[in-house]
């Protein structure tokens, strides 16, 4: 039994069958990669996990609880954090504030309306946020406004925002897109390191095969809304169906 179980998920946008009977079984503590050509439905699938989309049919169970029909903040409170394809951060806030907000959410729940608490008294939260920023390599940019950061740094900031919550399941949508090779390798190291020390289950969407094969324990290949194959990396590499999916895309 996996920590995240996806069964027969269908999603239709008008005439387009975006997801077609998708099944996924993510083992606790593992890294599960989802690969596939553009438009295969990878991000749509992730959107169904965090409450941005609701599938037409099918079920998404996390830790034995259905994620369908509950609000995004409730899903997060069950232990699911997501890194988006384009960094979703609080651009007007400082780096440390960006990470303190999710830390508060983790400690205080979905809302705590106390206007007379002071941020400066929350040393515990601040320390935790600072340590997490150290982990992702942003320790020297704590008081920078987030909008001033480079794209790569924004991605790392968003990663810190997820990691500070110590999620059970971390969803990563192309965490290394647009990164230079050195940054990519650093991100791989970070994800590996965190995977080992905290046992966070991860679902990664990725185009960069170098990243996929260095991280993944299992790979699902998605094409035109359908899972073609689900297997360990060694068997995926030479799989004829996978080649077909990617080559098919190349011919179009």
């Amino acid at each position: 039994m996996g920590i995240l179980e996806v069964q027969n998920v269908n999603k239709r946008f008008g005439g387009l069958q975006a997801l077609n009977n998708v099944n996924l079984d993510v083992v606790e503590g593992s890294v599960h990669a989802i690969i596939g050509p553009n438009g295969a439905g990878k991000s749509t699938l992730l959107n169904c996990f965090v409450g941005r989309l609701v599938p037409d049919t099918g079920s998404v169970m996390f830790n034995g609880q259905s994620l369908l029909g509950i609000k995004p903040h409730e899903i997060n409170q069950t232990g699911v954090s997501r890194v988006f394809q384009t960094p979703e951060i609080f651009t007007d806030l400082t780096v440390i504030e960006n990470v303190m907000i999710p830390a508060f959410a983790k400690r205080d729940g979905a809302y705590k309306l106390n206007p007379f608490k002071r941020v400066q008294d929350e040393a515990e939260i601040r320390d935790h946020a600072e340590h997490t920023l150290e982990d992702v390599g942003l320790a020297d940019k704590l008081d920078m406004t987030a909008s001033e950061m480079s794209r790569g740094d924004k991605r790392r900031l968003e990663m810190a925002m997820c990691l500070v919550q110590d999620p059970k399941l971390l969803l990563l949508d192309e965490p290394t897109a647009g990164m230079a090779r050195a940054d990519t390798n650093r991100t791989i190291d970070l994800l590996k390191h965190i995977g080992e020390s905290r046992g966070i289950t991860k679902v990664v969407i990725e185009h960069d095969m170098h990243v996929v094969f260095s991280l993944a324990d299992k790979i699902s290949v998605l094409a035109q809304g359908t899972v073609l194959v689900e297997d360990v990396p060694e068997n995926i590499k030479g799989h004829p169906k996978v080649r077909e999916a990617y080559l098919g895309e190349a011919q179009v």
Binding site: K71, H73, R82, T91, A105
Partner: peptide
């Protein structure tokens, strides 16, 4: 004000 969606995906109502 900055990013209400992010706030929701961060577990805050």
């Amino acid at each position: 004000k900055t990013n209400q969606q992010r706030l929701n995906y961060t577990g805050l109502n």
